[in-house]
Design a protein around this nucleic acid. Structure first.
Lengths: 341, 341
DNA sequence: CTGAAAGCGCTTACAG
DNA sequence: CTGAAAGCGCTTACAG
């Protein structure tokens, strides 16, 4: 197959560089790979030849022999809409892309919405097309993580995995974040505090609910089931859950919503129900995403350190690719007081 | 360099498949590449052997000989924050990823915020590491597009390019969208219609402004300079521009804002200024992004067909990779009436 | 329709 | 420190 575009002329190879520098291809390769066992003079000549020829290594040839692809995957294993509407997602994706770019490792974006796509991509990855996977999936029963680990592919999850698998992961301290927020509501004198949780097959959903329960109990407040509704992290889900909660407990004086996006939905419902925020009902979110700032009133929330999460995910992945054991990192969260609570 | 992970055992090669099927490697390769010039019996045997061995082609080896990488890049050449906070961006990225996945082509995400990163990535791409580039960059004077084209790399831009380069691109009909929106405002009886434009070194900024001017002129309304302010597509920029506009023209009765995100900022400023929307000031946005629905009141806006834009970008890119000439596609926009105008 | 063979561009023991 | 050589896993004319 010849190049279709005439402008796409033959690219210089290591052979051109070697000839230009007056050394062997082996020596050029050694310079390319760290310059060990190369005399300063030879290295100098090679570098000059590289500049002159505009040589760039052919990664395919390199990968063929090293068995490394030099790339990593950012793999989503859930119905993708959810992620792409979530402002956190962007920050994470951007952070990971840039942290890897610093190591000259391109990031492949992969979306496995259906079981079939999961199978296709698992196969693709297991075939060695990427050196490691940043896995974005929080639900239990996602078989992808286990399949990849079994295939020997380094994997780092975003968020605490639910299953028993000992999986490398980086997560924010959900439980403590929830504790801070609910503690803040209690300290403000709220007594009938409801919560809209995330899905309870995600550790974020479970841990934030746990923090809520703990603080209420410690404050001597009853933990009542009809103050707890579960939703799906979406704006619409948060709205519906809030409507239900309001219906069951019109006496509600505060609401801890497990994501900013859901809290946005809650705000809309409260407004339509004629409740003032924070006067009648204080509302606390979670994430400190862009949604928190665009809400009216601006959302009091819990900050997840997304920049650090992405940096750490990349660090853990790279060290795993280098043969280190898997590891887990839990990063602190922080209360961000604004206007809604 | 030996594999660090013991679970990462030797993967089957074309040789294993050939032996298993009792044919030569050439025949296996022919089956892999379309099955031309292969007897049904041989093809059958090879496919069975592939299933049995779990063979997956080694793309590096294939790329080394075909000169094709089998991947494409999604390249951002602007300060990335802007994109990642823009809800449109997600839809576009997701759409392109999926459209390419249907062709089994992985998408590499690349962010070139600084001139230095642009240079690094241009070099990387020009070295043949991807077969084509989906370029997201609207500003004039972005040298990346030209550099890539000169290197013979297929490129498709999102949005109309400003320069004189004849560049393949896919864009929405900005001018007509603006015409529809401003026509809607005029038809509703508004007479002092301001506009917050996008950057005037982007075709979106220029064309939406052109549509605004045209409709006012056609309606016999004066086009006054103090009704026009330029901003940067961000929420904060939209807010600041609106404040300025309100200051200059307190008699404003409508506002055409060139993006939903900026319109969100405008809404906040109008609210704080005590103007009711749409009673006192009608507000129209542009994009029909998720920001339009989360705004209060829900934003009347112009829908950009993001799904089709991404599909078309991929289609145009692939046909260019296959050697076809560059082409341009302009997709229709559509007014979406909601509550704000 | 099929096999044997050359070769894509690199890295890495192996000798020296 | 350096060169010659083997080989990574594929595809593709070339003969038959």
């Amino acid at each position: 197959m010849t190049p279709n575009n005439p402008a796409r002329r033959r690219r210089p190879t290591i052979h051109d560089v070697a000839r230009e520098a007056g050394v062997s291809r082996g020596t050029v390769s050694r310079v390319l790979n760290g310059g060990h066992y190369v005399s300063p003079a030879a290295a100098e000549a090679v570098n000059a030849a590289i500049r002159k020829t505009g040589y760039v290594v052919n990664r395919h040839a390199r990968s063929l022999i090293t068995g490394r692809s030099g790339s990593a995957a950012f793999l989503l294993t859930e119905p993708q809409e959810k992620f792409f509407e979530d402002p956190n997602f962007n920050v994470l994706l951007r952070g990971c892309t840039q942290a890897l770019a610093a190591h000259d490792i391109p990031l492949l974006l992969m979306i496995a919405g259906s079981r079939e796509e999961q199978r296709r991509l698992t196969r693709y990855i297991a075939a060695g097309h990427v050196d490691g996977v940043l896995l974005i999936s929080s639900h239990t029963g996602d078989p992808v993580a286990e399949e990849l680990v079994r295939a020997g592919i380094p994997v780092v999850m975003c968020g605490k995995p639910m299953g028993r698998t000992r999986l490398a992961h980086v997560a924010a301290d959900d439980r403590d974040g929830a504790r801070q927020m609910v503690g803040h509501l209690v300290a403000a004198g709220r007594r009938r505090i409801g919560t809209v949780t995330g899905p309870l097959d995600t550790s974020g959903g479970v841990d934030r609910l746990a923090g809520y329960r703990e603080v209420l109990a410690e404050a001597g407040l009853p933990v009542e089931d009809d103050l707890i509704v579960t939703a799906d992290y979406s704006r619409e889900g948060g709205a519906a859950a809030t409507a239900r909660l309001l219906d069951r407990r019109p006496d509600l004086d505060a609401l801890f919503v497990a994501s900013d996006l859901m809290a946005q939905g809650a705000l809309g419902v409260l407004e339509r129900a004629g409740r003032r925020v924070p006067e009648d009902v204080a509302v606390g979110g979670f994430d400190d995403s862009t949604a928190a700032l665009s809400s009216r009133p601006a959302l009091t929330t819990v900050r997840q350190p997304w920049d650090r999460i992405s940096t750490e995910m990349v660090r853990v992945l790279l060290s795993q690719i280098d043969g280190d054991a898997t590891s887990a990192v839990i990063l602190p969260t922080e209360l961000v007081p604004r206007d809604s609570a």
